[in-house]
Amino acid sequence: MSKAIQRAEEARKVTAGAAKPYPFWLGGLAASFAGTVTHPLDLTKVRLQTGEDKRMVQSFRRTVNNFGIRGLYDGLTGTLLRQMTYSLMRFAAYDYFKSQLHDGPGPAPIWKLAAAGSCAGGLAGMVGNPAELIMVRMQADRGKPPAERYNYRNAIQGLYRMAQQEGVASWYRGLVPNGVRSVLMNASQLGSYDWFKHRILDLKVFEDGPIVHFLSSLGAGTVATTVCSPADVIKSRIMNAHDQTGLLKVIRDSVAKEGPGVFFKGWLPAWIRLQPNTILIFLTLEQLKRGVDKYRHAGGTWL
């Protein structure tokens, strides 16, 4: 076979590999890895939002002093369940909606990216709400007085106990604020990541690689933290409540006691948590996609 024919065949394989969708579970796998690494920061953020601690370092130290280093991983099973439901769905749905909204040449405009992210976020928020709720309860548990703790052994047992004691409908407590947050998160994080990536590549300073992915993630994490902070605070307070406190009552009571700034309470730990989480997710996801591409180009057919 001549070199020209070989090059044509390689180009055909690359094009075919790029056109074929990636496995739907890649996003969940990347998010699970990132969530495990950043879990202590997420736990601290939730305890700041739902407890009496005022500063991130204070909350971090209290957890370590009272429960040791292992205490920083309270609720890890809830985090992993959340990533393999909510995150798996949002990445898979985002790719689908993006392909449906834009099939022309060149990158999609920002409004289409935001729309795809919003649709994916709404769907993922519904699918992942039970795991989100159990994760918040498990993370916040040791920050509360012993008499008020849920003491779930793991996420599955926690969901089972909730169904027994509070009914299956309890799995969808906080669905509205969580759904709003999910829409905002995915529109701002997924959409802005693609937007930043296209803009950076347009500068022709860096090739598509880890540097571009890192810078794009940095921008996406900052945008997402700011946009999602109010909904995130409300969601955590509703999900952590023992009674059937409604959305409007939580907002009214929070503003009355702590002022409008309450909606950005925990912004710094949220940003510190979301930035490495966002960076790890997208760096891992991009590498997983490249691994799939190499596998396909080598003739693999399972992925």
Rank of each mutant, 00 (worst) to 15 (best):
M1H: 11
I5S: 06
R12L: 15
G17V: 12
G17C: 13
A19R: 14
A19D: 11
L26S: 01
G27R: 01
G28D: 05
L29Q: 03
T36E: 00
V37M: 06
H39I: 02
L43P: 01
T44I: 12
T44L: 15
T63C: 06
I69V: 11
G71T: 00
R90K: 10
A92V: 04
A93E: 02
Y96C: 01
K98L: 02
S99N: 13
G106Y: 12
A108N: 05
I110K: 01
L113A: 06
C119P: 09
G121Q: 05
G121W: 06
M126I: 15
N129Y: 09
E132P: 02
L133G: 12
V136P: 03
D141P: 08
P146E: 09
Y150Q: 05
N151T: 06
R173G: 07
G179I: 07
G179T: 09
G179V: 10
S188E: 02
S188V: 03
Q189K: 10
L190C: 02
F196G: 10
V205G: 13
V205Q: 13
F214H: 10
S216A: 09
L218I: 05
G219A: 12
G219C: 11
D243I: 12
R252I: 00
D253S: 14
D253P: 06
V255Q: 05
V255T: 10
R273M: 14
R273K: 11
I281F: 08
D293V: 09
K294M: 09
R296C: 06
W302R: 11
